[in-house]
């Protein structure tokens, strides 16, 4: 291995067995996270971005879900082979996660202090008093005023933005090397979203952790991510750095996403929407899953599935447009 990766995901397949068929929620995803970087995963609902994250944490509800194939190498160790007991040492300690809705992910019957110290007491051999002191520091770190008094408050006594700060404090309790943020700002107002994004940037600089940022908002991606993976129907369609993604997007789906965002220009142009809607994952057809909605689709797209390949240095795309081009060039 030339480069040092914190996390490597190789050919990950996560499936759900339902009464009406097998749903391939994550279908052959490959990526790696370097220490200290921010990787963005973008896609629409049902594209498999959250399932990818849950697979890394091994939190896929099972049954009906199951990781059927692949490797998740964390510092070279395959997490898929770990037992539940071993995973518990990793979750919340080495890898932590924050969720979209801070109200449902905090327990309403315990105070914030109790919930914060729980993480510390589980993973670190500390006394109750030490844990409380550390919890106060954490709340201070995430910018909650009067942290000592706030520890005694219950989640409902916090506003949405403050709750998300508490969630972040909890996730940071054990200095994780990797933070997985699943739509952390989607439920928040823009001004509060700006606060949380600034906070995440600041914390990353101070603590040096890597972040996997799952979002559907390309604005958030442009703001915070170093590299971006675009997902569609469980597959990875494009993977590159953020500048290339916005400057020279390659996949027709990425074009569609970028065109769908209203531009704030004086002359209003009609939005170029992607026609149709995402496919039903239970009844995926042969070929490229995006072919149905793709403006560039050819007959071969409905027969042959594209493969992810590097079309330019550091720019991976899964689309037949480029595969055939490559063939003719050669």
């Amino acid at each position: 291995m030339g480069e040092n990766f914190l996390l490597q995901v190789r050919d990950l397949h996560t499936q759900f067995v339902t009464q009406s068929g097998v749903v391939k929620a994550v279908d052959g995803v490959n990526f790696e996270v370097k220490p200290g970087e921010t990787l963005g995963i973008v896609g629409e609902s049902g594209s498999g971005k959250s399932m990818t994250a849950l697979s890394i944490m091994k939190l896929v509800p099972s049954p009906p879900g199951e990781i059927v194939k692949g490797e998740i190498l964390y510092n070279g160790d395959d997490l898929i082979k770990k037992t539940e007991k071993q995973m518990r040492h990793i979750r919340g300690n080495k890898i932590s996660m924050i969720f979209q809705d801070p109200m449902t992910s905090l327990n309403p019957v315990f105070t914030v202090g109790e919930q914060l110290t729980e993480t510390l007491r589980t993973h670190r051999n500390v006394s109750k008093r030490q844990a409380l002191e550390h919890a106060t520091e954490l709340l201070n770190l995430v910018g909650i005023p009067d942290p000592k008094a706030r520890l005694k408050n219950y989640p409902h006594e916090f506003s949405g933005g403050m709750r998300q700060r508490v969630m972040i404090a909890m996730a940071l309790a054990c200095d994780p090397e990797l933070l997985i943020a699943d739509e952390p700002t989607t439920a928040l107002d823009v001004t509060v979203q700006a606060q949380i994004l600034e906070l995440l940037k600041k914390l990353q600089k101070e603590l040096g952790m890597a972040i996997i940022m799952i979002t559907h908002d390309l604005g958030v991606v442009a703001e915070i991510c170093d590299r971006v993976m675009v997902m569609y129907a469980g597959k990875q369609v494009e993977f590159t750095d953020r500048f290339r993604l916005f400057d020279v997007p390659k996949h027709p789906y990425t074009w569609g996403l970028l065109n769908s965002i209203p531009k704030m220009e004086k002359e209003k142009k009609r939005l170029k929407a992607i026609s149709g809607h995402p496919p039903d994952l239970r009844h995926l057809r042969k070929g490229c899953p995006f072919a149905e909605r793709c403006p560039k689709a050819k007959a071969s797209c409905r027969i042959q599935a594209p493969h992810l390949q590097e079309v330019e240095p550091g720019h991976l795309v899964s689309c037949l447009l480029y595969e055939e081009e490559k063939v003719t060039l050669e």
Binding site: L218, L257, N259, A273
Partner: peptide
């Protein structure tokens, strides 16, 4: 709604 669908509905 998702971005791609949002654009359809706005149009």
């Amino acid at each position: 709604l998702d971005v791609s669908i949002q654009a359809q509905v706005i149009n």
